[in-house]
Simulated assay, not measured.
Amino acid sequence: MAHKAVFLDRDGVINEVQSGRVGFVNSADDVYLLPGSAEAIKLLNANDYKVYIVTNQGGIGLGFMSEVELMQIHTRLLELLNEEAGARIDDIAYCPNKPQDNSSCRKPKPTMIIELAHKHDIDLKRSFTIGDMRSDIASGNEAGTSTFLILEKDEVIPMIDEKYVATSLKDAVKQILQMG
């Protein structure tokens, strides 16, 4: 039987971006976990969800970092998740192309999710995509997953495409686990 999975955007969902400590994540020194994100991923691991990161990394195409630096960032992220909660990411997909390239791999296109689903035998109908931007939601919807948009606590925007809304990754995971 195919697996159920959660596809996570990286920046703004798992780790800080444009916060007081970090602008954009262009080196391993810029990686700071958001509160509760490691525990949330560990909960997914413990409840038989495969967990994947799908992330646009236009900084590579724009020359702000290299693919080697991106690998260092991901290595650091995986170390922090493991150290903080024993959390595991099953695979990471990224698109290195510039935002203006209209690339086939960049979200809002569903390519990264669909490729991970094929590679790892994932049932997209039983899976979720969690992100903090409309492009994350559009990607998840087009791939056939349910979607969660993470909003700031006081942020109010009209629901357009997302099926669910949460205030953090931990909040989204609690809702997923309550659904069964």
Rank of each mutant, 00 (worst) to 15 (best):
D161F: 13
R126I: 05
H118Q: 15
T167W: 10
T111H: 13
L149H: 02
R126P: 04
R126W: 04
T111I: 09
V156F: 06
S127K: 01
G144W: 08
L151Q: 14
R126A: 14
D154V: 12
S127Y: 02
L116W: 03
L124A: 04
K119N: 09
K163T: 13
G140R: 02
M133I: 09
S139D: 06
I130Y: 03
S139M: 08
A143Q: 00
F148P: 00
V156P: 00
D136R: 00
Y164H: 12
A166M: 04
D154S: 13
K125N: 10
I114T: 14
M159W: 06
S146W: 02
V165N: 09
M159N: 10
A138Q: 14
T111W: 09
E162S: 04
T167Q: 14
S127D: 02
A138N: 08
H120Y: 15
H118W: 11
S146D: 09
A138R: 10
F148R: 04
I160P: 05
F128C: 06
K163A: 12
A166W: 00
I160A: 13
K119L: 13
K153I: 09
L124Y: 02
A138I: 13
R134A: 12
K163Q: 14
D161L: 15
E142H: 10
M159E: 09
D161H: 13
K125D: 10
D132I: 08
I130E: 05
L124V: 07
L151H: 07
I122L: 14
G131A: 05
S135Y: 05
M112I: 10
E115A: 14
Y164M: 04
K163H: 14
G144T: 07
I157C: 10
D161V: 12
D161P: 04
D154Y: 13
P158W: 03
L116C: 03
I114C: 13
R126N: 14
S146N: 06
A117V: 12
S146A: 11
G144L: 03
L124S: 02
V165G: 08
S139A: 15
I150D: 00
T129R: 00
K163C: 07
G131I: 05
F148K: 09
I122H: 03
D154E: 15
K163L: 13
S127W: 01
E162R: 04
I150Q: 00
V165M: 11
I130C: 07
E162V: 10
L124M: 06
D121F: 11
D132M: 11
I122A: 08
T129I: 07
E115D: 15
T145E: 01
D132K: 05
T147H: 03
H120A: 09
I160C: 11
F148V: 09
T129Y: 00
I113W: 00
S127A: 08
R134F: 08
G140Q: 06
V156W: 05
T129E: 01
D121V: 10
M133G: 09
R134C: 10
V165R: 15
M133Q: 10
T129V: 10
I122R: 00
M159I: 11
A138G: 07
I113C: 02
L124W: 01
I160K: 15
K119R: 15
T147I: 08
A143M: 03
H120N: 15
I122E: 05
